[in-house]
Measured scan of single mutants.
Amino acid sequence: MSIQHFRVALIPFFAAFCLPVFAHPETLVKVKDAEDQLGARVGYIELDLNSGKILESFRPEERFPMMSTFKVLLCGAVLSRVDAGQEQLGRRIHYSQNDLVEYSPVTEKHLTDGMTVRELCSAAITMSDNTAANLLLTTIGGPKELTAFLHNMGDHVTRLDRWEPELNEAIPNDERDTTMPAAMATTLRKLLTGELLTLASRQQLIDWMEADKVAGPLLRSALPAGWFIADKSGAGERGSRGIIAALGPDGKPSRIVVIYTTGSQATMDERNRQIAEIGASLIKHW
């Protein structure tokens, strides 16, 4: 067993022997301040990774656009098919120029040779490549099948209805392509620590998230040296922004954090800054 596999296998073990965790309302004060600064709703939840206990939450059962955070769930569904012998990570998928959609920095470079399922998941999570996500959605049967996968996990809230990039439209009061912070946090925890996926697939999923290259201005910008984070960000229309993450000190994750916002007129930089400040408060009061 590799060191990384050992780390993920012992996530519940280490967490069980940690000192009790206590909620700190100071972080919620910052979440509410972010709402004021952005002029928009902000949803927040913080779960203990081992027990699933909610440590703090704000608007945990209000719907927010998922945006690209759905790509972690998508690759979880792909990995479940791999575990069941219905898919192979090494299978190569070929596609054409007509398949390319807006923001496809990886797939646009491989029109000639195609990409493997493993490479597509890596591109979808680490670079948020939209064509990679659409190609992977095709392998599982489309958005409705991802929703069905989530329902089978016990998540009857999260739903995907459309493809990239239309799913980022974020129309107010439109339930399409949305989740709730509580539902997303619980589902992410199941994917990373539950028995739904094999140990190898859980490790692969967290490795992809740990290698995320496009979430630097968010929670990662607030992390002290030595902290662990595996995350996936999302951005959408109407001032929408979000991030889902597993993080913790001492090089291992111990909490799940989900943050979503929508309806702001603020710039992307300002949305990023507010999420980073929430992260800084979380870490300060850990």
Rank of each mutant, 00 (worst) to 15 (best):
H24Y: 04
H24Q: 08
T27N: 12
V29I: 08
K32P: 03
G39W: 07
A40W: 10
R41H: 11
V42I: 02
I45L: 09
D48R: 04
D48Q: 02
N50C: 07
K53T: 07
K53I: 12
E56C: 10
E56Q: 05
P60H: 13
E61C: 14
R63V: 10
F64K: 01
T69G: 12
K71E: 00
L73Y: 05
L73F: 04
L74E: 04
L74N: 02
C75N: 10
L79M: 10
G85I: 04
L89H: 10
G90R: 10
R91E: 14
R91D: 08
Q97P: 08
E102P: 04
T107D: 01
E108P: 14
E108T: 14
H110E: 10
R118C: 14
R118E: 13
E119W: 15
L120E: 01
A124F: 00
I125W: 00
T126W: 11
T126L: 07
S128I: 00
T131I: 03
L136H: 01
G141E: 15
G142P: 05
G142V: 06
K144E: 04
K144I: 13
E145R: 13
A148S: 08
A148N: 11
F149W: 04
F149V: 05
F149C: 06
L150N: 07
N152T: 11
N152F: 04
G154L: 11
D155S: 07
H156S: 09
V157Y: 15
V157F: 06
T158G: 06
W163R: 08
E164S: 00
E166N: 14
E169P: 05
I171D: 15
P172E: 12
D174Q: 15
D174N: 13
E175M: 15
E175V: 05
T178H: 12
T179W: 00
M180G: 03
P181E: 00
P181C: 05
A182M: 04
A183W: 06
M184I: 02
M184L: 02
A185V: 09
L188M: 14
L188E: 01
R189H: 10
K190D: 11
L192D: 01
T193Y: 02
L199A: 09
A200Y: 06
S201I: 09
R202S: 11
Q203I: 01
Q203T: 02
L205V: 04
I206Y: 15
W208A: 13
M209G: 11
M209A: 10
M209C: 13
K213Y: 13
A215H: 15
G216A: 10
P217N: 08
L218G: 04
L219R: 04
R220M: 12
R220W: 09
S221P: 08
P224F: 03
P224N: 15
G226K: 05
W227G: 07
F228V: 15
I229R: 04
A230M: 05
A230W: 05
D231Y: 14
D231F: 03
D231R: 10
K232T: 01
K232E: 01
S233G: 11
G234N: 01
G234I: 00
G236R: 01
G236S: 09
E237H: 14
R238F: 13
R238E: 15
S240R: 09
G242R: 00
G242A: 05
G242M: 14
G242K: 00
I244H: 01
L247Q: 09
L247Y: 14
D250G: 03
K252W: 08
S254Y: 02
R255V: 13
V258D: 02
I259F: 04
T261Q: 05
G263A: 08
Q265A: 08
Q265Y: 09
T267Q: 10
M268H: 09
E270K: 01
N272C: 05
Q274A: 13
E277H: 06
I278A: 14
G279F: 05
A280G: 14
L282K: 13
I283H: 05
I283A: 02
K284Q: 03
K284D: 09
K284S: 09
